[in-house]
């Protein structure tokens, strides 16, 4: 496959960026999107220029490091995949592909296609956990948990923190990310103990960091590589009202 790539290049956080157009030829349809970028970078290095920076690590869709905004969609034109799982067979020979970094005020650009997602960590630091110290916990089977609740919890816990929800949302809202963590713990008996403190702290941090608000457009759910459902946002809302009102 031969492709034209329009890629956002930006020297560093302070520099002004611009789109640069590249041509790549002879790309295998079986290669992944990031492998295609590897080929491009090899070409760039051969010309003694600086290769395109992008975040990536596990390349099997679980670490959440990769995340490119490809032709108007986070993680590109396939559903339920991360960028590293996107394969070139989803494109046609001769296509032009526009590649941009995640855009959101709380996700400043570090370089090229690398956005800083430390804001997500900060939200978790604020309360995205169950406060137990190592040791001194009851036996694992001491509290039975209905299977369906364990399943709901796992659905939410599947979040990989890639930020596609924020990137897709027209408001750059982080509600799906926050909801996934709140929801995971809210349905478990262990998590109920500090549910109220958790949701208040996490929502406050989310607002403070400058994420937008949720207008229920559903773009996050559509682009989430782990298909996390909007129902978790509804649960987050319920948890929040309960925490604030009761």
């Amino acid at each position: 496959m031969d492709l034209t790539l329009k890629i956002w290049r930006q020297e560093n956080a302070r520099a002004k960026g611009k789109f640069v157009t590249y041509q790549v030829t002879d790309i295998s349809p079986d290669s992944s999107f990031l492998e295609m970028l590897d080929v491009l970078n090899q070409q760039i290095i051969d010309k003694l220029e600086k290769p395109v920076c992008f975040d990536h690590d596990c390349r099997e869709g679980i670490c959440g490091a990769c995340g490119l905004y490809i032709n108007g969609r986070p993680h590109g034109p396939d559903s339920a995949v991360t960028t590293c799982q996107l394969h070139m067979r989803k494109f046609k020979d001769g296509d032009t592909i526009v590649i941009e970094p995640w855009r959101a005020k709380p996700f400043p650009i570090i370089k090229d296609l690398v956005a800083d997602r430390i804001a997500f960590d900060k939200i978790i630091h604020a309360g995205g956990y169950i406060s137990v110290n190592t040791g001194g916990v009851p036996d694992a089977n001491a509290i039975p948990i209905p299977r369906n609740l364990a399943e709901i919890s796992m659905d939410a816990a599947a979040c990989i923190g890639c930020g596609a929800c924020v990137a897709a949302c027209k408001n750059a809202s982080a509600m799906l990310f926050v909801a996934a963590k709140v929801s995971q713990f809210a349905v478990l008996p262990q998590g109920k103990v500090e549910a109220s403190e958790r949701v208040k702290a996490m929502v406050a941090k989310m607002d403070e960091l400058g994420f937008g608000s949720c207008t229920n457009t559903g773009a996050c759910e559509a682009e989430c590589p782990k298909e996390i459902s909007l129902s978790h946002i509804a649960r987050l809302n319920r948890e929040f009202y309960t925490a604030k009102i009761c």
Binding site: K6, W8, F19, Y69, N71, G72, R73, P74, V98, E100, R103, A104, K105, P106, A168, K170, N171, A172, S173, G210, F211, G212, S213, T215, N216, T217, G218, A219, A222, E223
Partner: peptide, 28 residues
């Protein structure tokens, strides 16, 4: 809310979003 939402993405995308969404939600 709208103003805050606009401020949440000071630099927009070059390619407009074409994610699957509730269509009218974009034009509230």
């Amino acid at each position: 809310l709208q103003v805050k939402n606009w401020l949440s993405r000071p630099i927009g995308y070059n390619k407009t979003n074409n994610s699957q969404t509730s269509f009218f939600s974009k034009f509230m």
